[in-house]
Amino acid sequence: MLKLYWADDDCLLPGDRGLAYGDGLFETIRVNGDSAPLLVYHLDRLMRDAGRLGIRLSRPELESAVAHAMKRYGAIHGISHWVLKLVVTRGSGGRGYRPAADVSPHLYLFHSVLPPLPPETGVMVDFSRVPLTVNPLLSGIKSLNRLEQVMAAREMKDPTFELLMTNAAGHVVEGTRTNLFLHGPDGWRTPPAASLAVSGVMRRKVIECLLAAGEPFRECELQVEDLLGRECQGLYLTNSVLGVVPVRNLAGLDLPVGNRLATICDPHKRPD
């Protein structure tokens, strides 16, 4: 049975395995007034990845808890845009790394105001010096262990909006908090899901929109030269809270900027 805790009640449990070992998952959901356009995508990923980690979750229990949170926190934020964060841990119990057989998962619910949105004219991005290592067993999972992203984010200095991370092979994989899409003469490209530390729900939505629109698209490895080369017709970052963000400058090089991807797909697009 899922145990529910409200973060604003100061109820984080000292024996929680999420706190002790990063044994859990999280989702950060943008809520527009009383609706969350990508909610189903978030719950799909949470259920799928909990299954991969062997954390027993009930979809009906999870949906009921989220509906309760939307009502509780929606009363605070009204028609404003805000953020609902779900943290699921395996629970408490077990000696050391080995969990108890009868451990029950915990769900912590947080809320916050929507952070400032990036300008539609594009953002400045650079490369991180922190390499990204992806364990194939955990690829794509938005687990509570995000230390590589934390270390990379510590390098960031204003006005840089994001840092892109490369793996041991030198392939550009993702940002500290974003996935990426490259537009070129042959269509759209994005790194393969198996290479990602976090496979974002906005990434899934964009891929669905590109395929539905009949846009040429493929998943493939990306080199630094692909992003900085003459054939780059646009580089875009995606994030479920921020939507689609065009990159106007990468590592000091100006890139073509447009709203092409946001036109094709952005559930959070601001009205004209």
Rank of each mutant, 00 (worst) to 15 (best):
P118V: 01
P192M: 07
H111T: 12
L39N: 04
R17A: 02
G15L: 15
W6Q: 14
L43S: 03
P118L: 00
D10A: 15
G214I: 11
F181E: 02
E63Y: 03
S80A: 15
S80I: 12
A100P: 08
Q233R: 08
G51M: 09
A194N: 10
E120V: 04
L196R: 09
L43A: 02
A67L: 07
T263P: 04
V130K: 02
V224Q: 06
I29C: 08
T190P: 07
I264L: 15
P105S: 09
V40T: 12
R72P: 01
G170V: 09
P37F: 00
Y41M: 06
G214F: 03
A20S: 06
L261T: 02
F110N: 03
D126M: 07
L164K: 05
T263S: 07
P159C: 08
M165D: 07
D8G: 07
S199Y: 14
M151C: 13
R248E: 01
K269A: 04
N32I: 09
A168P: 09
F181K: 05
D23K: 13
S139D: 05
E208A: 09
V125A: 01
A251E: 12
T89Y: 07
V113M: 12
V173M: 12
H81T: 15
T190D: 06
R72Y: 10
L114R: 08
T190R: 05
T121I: 11
R154I: 09
T176E: 04
A100V: 10
T178Q: 01
T166E: 09
T28H: 14
E174W: 07
G93M: 11
L109M: 13
M151K: 09
